[in-house]
């Protein structure tokens, strides 16, 4: 779901860049004066998001999907923190390895960071239990895949119908794995480090 440069039309690039920039600006402002105790946690969260996005799973048709790691960050640290962490990981991937484009960073940030951080956190708050991630994960995967499909469709890169279903369905399947990993990590943290589940969620 890391859209490379050259895939999206100018209009889609502009709209997603503006949206992504707005979320990035607000999240930076909110986290600017974070206490020093919180910064290593944000760094660890960025490392987690960066690392899991490198691990891909085969999807039907020879394609590949990967975990995003944002749901865990949103549940532990809050939506603005998860969004900023996701942006950092995406920027790093694009700059260092051309994994996702620089011009399409806004689109990738919205698909992976913004949707998963804010919607994930909103759904998590409804029932903050580890098992909730099993349901939230596939739903977030589906919605992220759908957003990606819409952007590709609007840019003339994806035929409607089967392409939409294939992309969103594959991301929902990846979301199942994401939900399972998140649920097991949250379960383990609640036993081993319960304090991490009581952090201020920004």
């Amino acid at each position: 779901m890391h859209i490379p440069d050259g895939f999206l039309s100018g209009g889609v690039l502009g709209a997603t860049a503006l949206g992504g920039l707005a979320v990035f600006s607000v999240s930076s402002a909110r986290l600017k004066n974070s206490p020093p105790e919180r910064i290593p946690l944000l760094g660890a969260a960025a490392a987690w998001v960066f690392a899991v996005q490198l691990l891909a799973f085969p999807a039907p048709g020879g394609a590949s999907v990967h975990l995003n790691g944002v749901l865990l960050c949103a549940a532990l640290l809050g939506p603005w923190s998860a969004a900023l962490v996701s942006f950092s990981a995406l920027l790093l991937s694009a700059l260092m390895f051309q994994h996702g484009g620089l011009f399409s960073l806004g689109a990738n940030f919205i698909n992976i960071g913004v949707i998963q951080a804010f919607l994930g956190f909103a759904l998590w708050r409804l029932r903050p239990a580890a098992s909730s991630a099993l349901v939230i994960g596939p739903l977030l995967g589906f919605l992220s895949g759908l957003a990606c499909a819409v952007e590709l469709y609007l840019s003339g890169r994806l035929a409607s119908g089967a392409g939409f279903l294939l992309l969103a369905g594959a991301q929902a399947a990846a979301g199942l794995a994401e939900g399972a990993v998140t649920a097991s990590l949250l379960g383990a943290l609640s036993r081993l480090k319960p304090g991490l589940l009581r952090l201020e969620r920004v």
């Binding site: 890391h2 859209i3 490379p4 895939f7 394609a63 999907v65 698909n111 994806l158 991301q171």
Partner: peptide
């Protein structure tokens, strides 16, 4: 060359 896997990944 544009390569697209239909999942949002690809390269130009």
């Amino acid at each position: 060359l544009e390569i697209n896997d239909g999942m949002g990944h690809g390269l130009v």
